[in-house]
Amino acid sequence: MTKEKPSLTADKTPSIYPAKTKMQVTLIFFVIIGIYLFSMYWTQREMVGGIGGALGNMYVVIEKFFPPNFAVLPAIWEPMAQTIQMAILATTVSAILTVPLALLSAQNVTTFKPLYYLTRTFLNILRTIPDLVLAVLFVGLFGIGLFPGILALIVFSLGILAKLISETIESVDMNPMEAMRASGGNTLQVIWYALVPQVAPQFASLVLYVFEINIRASVVLGLVGAGGIGLILNQQLGFYNYPNAMAIIILIFVVVIVIEFISNKIREALL
């Protein structure tokens, strides 16, 4: 070792990666950086004062949010409870509706291919639409209130839940099912005695996971008029009443953390 160069760039040691891979990686890297810089330019072109001004402004604004006005807590407790109730109801309904959909979109249960592809495609399209867009649509259809919010949550979580559960179904041990079929069980019996016991714990765990997602989604549904605490938050922001808004945001934060903690504990116990 007489050379001063670090071993990485020493010309004698052959590189681990072929030159072609290196070229490709470098090229991809620069393309990504290029798109990133362009995205940054594009998204900032309407911003007044540039990034420096924004950072200074952020400090001023954050000061406006503090201290949060916790005196509003008693008044916002009821919409918060309603938000949680919306999530519970929506999760329950979608957990029921998901059963046939998940069975139809599991390759090992639905042996009739066209039906399987049809359900899969339907679920894939369902999952592309974000929750708030669904809420906007349903508010347009059913008017402002809780009902469009609950419906949006049901449809939104149905897409996720059915996909996750159908994947669970596809990964089960097929031997009990075959044994049931061989001893003359019909489709329903096979599902009930061979499939349900295998997927039940995962099913419960995934439903709880989707419940967490629904809680997060339901707190913001009110922003588009679909009920819950988001409606109050939107009003307070509209009145530039930032301390009240901050109190609501902190309440949302605490509720989400508590529910997630409980749900995590239950899921750990289940699996």
Binding site: Q44, E46, M47, A54, M58, I62, A217, I249, I252, F253
Partner: peptide, 27 residues
């Protein structure tokens, strides 16, 4: 987990107030 507890939209509200209503708040 504290960061994860904030829904994206709530963060967007905070940043819209801070940097103004533009795409950068979304970023």
């Amino acid at each position: 987990s504290a960061v994860r507890a904030f829904p994206d939209i709530i963060l967007a509200i905070l940043f819209v107030v801070a940097v103004g209503p533009n795409a950068f708040a979304g970023v």
